[in-house]
């Protein structure tokens, strides 16, 4: 089966007059049809940058992509021009953002905002009334009464607003949905509702999804595969089972999981992760996690670790190279 999305060795830098920020440093992953990938990591790890790069919504002035390819249905998105990207955005790849309070235009009715998505991609030449019908459909799909389409965003609660955002994103039935922390800004109870809805829609429409989050609980409910991102690199990648209950883990992942018990016997003790992510404006030699790693070796500071793969599970760490040697 052909990959829906294949990201290869993606690098993204932000260049200002003063300095260069090395935001994404060689990231690769794939997504199949119908699959949900969770991108997990701290703030500043580069998760949002990766998703914006896919949609080519990075700041024109400062963002540079010196290396890498992003294949969507076989075509390299980085080769496409703005007009071609506009056709893809909203129609084949959609994105929803973190804060529903500010994601909607406050002086436009939600019906109009949904309709806009439809009109921008109106290849079938639907009439205005047909578009309106579709808007109603989409609203019903996310559980909002269609009569409310003439209302304004401020008349909706946080959770309802997020549903509207989702409605806009899914109106054209895209094949890939990128959701950047969709529930972080919502209360826990609403979170569950929205997640459930997203799951249902995903099944209904067969949409693939990239779910960006730092909440492992969310990941466990919704994702098929997981990628752990640290300082612009994927340090661990695998299926849900691999990452949650696999034999080996990247020390960072261990820190993330904290008190979640492992299903296997080889449980690592709970350890807080000391320190902060390295300064992204400085080029790094060796492993980026070295300063915070409880298992740091001399080689970690010298050489960038290569990937240790075990079936579908990948870990980028010198530890396992060694173990393999010793095994």
């Amino acid at each position: 089966m052909e990959n829906l999305l294949e990201v290869k060795n993606l690098q993204v830098h932000y260049e200002t007059d003063k300095e260069t920020v090395y935001a994404v440093n060689g990231v690769s992953f794939t997504i199949q049809n119908g699959e949900t990938l969770g991108l997990v990591g701290e703030t500043g790890a580069g998760k949002t940058t990766i998703s914006l790069a896919i949609l080519q919504l990075l700041s024109e002035r400062t963002a540079r992509i010196p290396k890498g390819e992003i294949y969507f249905k076989g075509k390299n998105l980085l080769d496409l021009g703005e007009k071609e990207m506009q056709l893809i955005r909203g129609e084949e790849i959609s994105m929803i953002f973190q804060d529903p309070m500010t994601a909607l235009n406050p002086i436009m009715t939600i019906g109009k905002q949904i309709a806009e998505a439809l009109r921008l991609h109106n290849h079938q030449g639907l009439s205005l009334s047909e578009i309106e019908e579709k808007v109603d459909e989409v609203l019903k799909m996310v559980g909002i009464p269609p009569e409310r389409k003439t209302e304004y965003p401020h008349q909706f609660s946080g959770g309802m607003k997020q549903r509207v955002v989702i409605a806009i994103a899914l109106a054209c039935e895209p094949q890939l949905l990128i959701a950047d922390e969709p529930t972080t800004a919502l209360d826990v109870t609403i979170q569950a509702q929205v997640l459930l809805m997203m799951k249902r829609l995903r099944q209904q429409l067969g949409t693939s999804m990239i779910l960006i989050t730092h909440d492992l609980g969310v990941v466990s409910k919704v994702c098929d595969n997981v990628a752990v991102i640290y300082a612009g690199e994927i340090v661990e990648y695998g299926t849900l089972r691999d990452v949650f209950s696999g034999k080996v883990h990247h020390p960072y992942t261990v820190g993330l999981f904290g008190s979640i018990p492992s299903l296997t016997a080889k449980t690592r003790r709970l350890q807080p992760i000391e320190g902060l992510m390295p300064d992204p404006t400085k080029e790094v030699q060796g492993c980026r996690f070295a300063d915070r790693c409880p298992h740091v070796r001399e080689i970690c500071r010298r050489e960038s670790p290569s990937i240790f793969a075990e079936g579908s599970h990948q870990v980028k760490c010198h530890l396992f190279r060694e173990e393999e040697k010793h095994a």
């Binding site: 955005r89 994601a103 806009i168």
Partner: peptide
């Protein structure tokens, strides 16, 4: 943010 949302919809 809503400007970004609009761009993500495919608006020019």
């Amino acid at each position: 943010e809503y400007i970004r949302t609009a761009r993500a919809k495919g608006a020019s």
